[in-house]
Design a protein around this nucleic acid. Sequence first.
DNA 1: CGAATAGTGTCTGTGAGACAATATTTA
DNA 2: TAAATATTGTCTCACAGACACTATTCG
Lengths: 212, 212
Amino acid sequence: MTDYRDSSGRRLDDYPRPSVAVDTAVLTVVDDALAVLLVRTGEGDAEWRLPGSFIHEGETLRAAVLRSLRMKAGIDGLRPRQLHVFDAPGRDDRGWVLSVAHVDVVGVDRLPASEGHLLARVDDLPDLKYDHEEIVAFAVEAVRVDYRTAPDPAGLLGDSFTMRQLRLLHEAVLNVRLLPDTFRRTMAPQLRATGETWVEGRGRPAEVFQRM
Amino acid sequence: MTDYRDSSGRRLDDYPRPSVAVDTAVLTVVDDALAVLLVRTGEGDAEWRLPGSFIHEGETLRAAVLRSLRMKAGIDGLRPRQLHVFDAPGRDDRGWVLSVAHVDVVGVDRLPASEGHLLARVDDLPDLKYDHEEIVAFAVEAVRVDYRTAPDPAGLLGDSFTMRQLRLLHEAVLNVRLLPDTFRRTMAPQLRATGETWVEGRGRPAEVFQRM
DNA sequence: CGAATAGTGTCTGTGAGACAATATTTA
DNA sequence: TAAATATTGTCTCACAGACACTATTCG
């Protein structure tokens, strides 16, 4: 490394450096409600936190997120989105730690169900360690903004789905009831109608749509 | 500091830590166009960068931004908004450096005009050091989103102003021409009409508005 | 057939965009 | 008075919300 000095004439490693972590709110839909994946902390009573990790040398934040999710939750193939840096002094009792919060949304079938994991409804969270409740709130708001205008931007439904499936998903994510006709007219122009239909329980079969 | 260990059994200071910097795009309006404040880097030929600094121990990102702007540009009293963490490997030739990008908008009268500073139109930037061109693009987009719907969210115009002053400002920030009547009808409900009028050059005097 | 669901017709209100008309001032 | 600017009137279009009606299937 070249011996660069900054405008104060100090070398880079003269400065104390913070620990930098990534923490990820992995959201999913369970029982018609938005839920977040929590992992148990090692020590003592049931204490929960978001999966996260300190970043490794030379690693990007994104790589750290993917690594921490693979190690701590066995999830692969996510596309995390960076949200915000949480930096309140004292937010982490282990020292000077910044956390770069991330969010992603995945199908519940891709999430672990073992003892050390919990899927908690976002409107009924247990106490979380650090400022992770704040991170969850931040993540939920970001995902809801996306789901207000675009059809299933996280791709939970796969390639093909009916308007009803799409609407029920959006109702779960947004925690509101949506009018079927208005919802259809908002989403249909953003989708490709296949002409095919699917039968689901009672009633007239529904047309199948695909992403553009 | 307590000797906490993480889930791998390692102490916090066993991990290598990145240097963390803040860089701020201070935007303003000059000659009916959006411009950004740049500072000259110490070494050699004219090289420009955003004002920034490494964070100091225990300092919040916000405090580091305010300190760096006070030291490097003599600006006080900003309310910077956090944008994004830039973390590409090799983005900084001095080593492993993350930058937390920020943005704020202030009146040109509050900015320094000395030799080491430059106000560059954002559509005609010189070459910038590091990935600061990317940060400027990010900042400009964030500010434009704000100015699309709300009247002068950064408060450049002070307490009282006419619709014309407000519209010319928005045209400068957004780099578009706006229809006076449509613009008025969008903004008027978000402002308080005073009944007072101001004469400016030719034409019928304009009503003075204030923020709600 | 009746219940349930899918999909369309249509009315209303709101608001943006656009152009025209009116109002008030300076040169 | 002519030009410039401010403000309001109004028309059109698009679209969300809402309700009603039609279509199709299962029990």
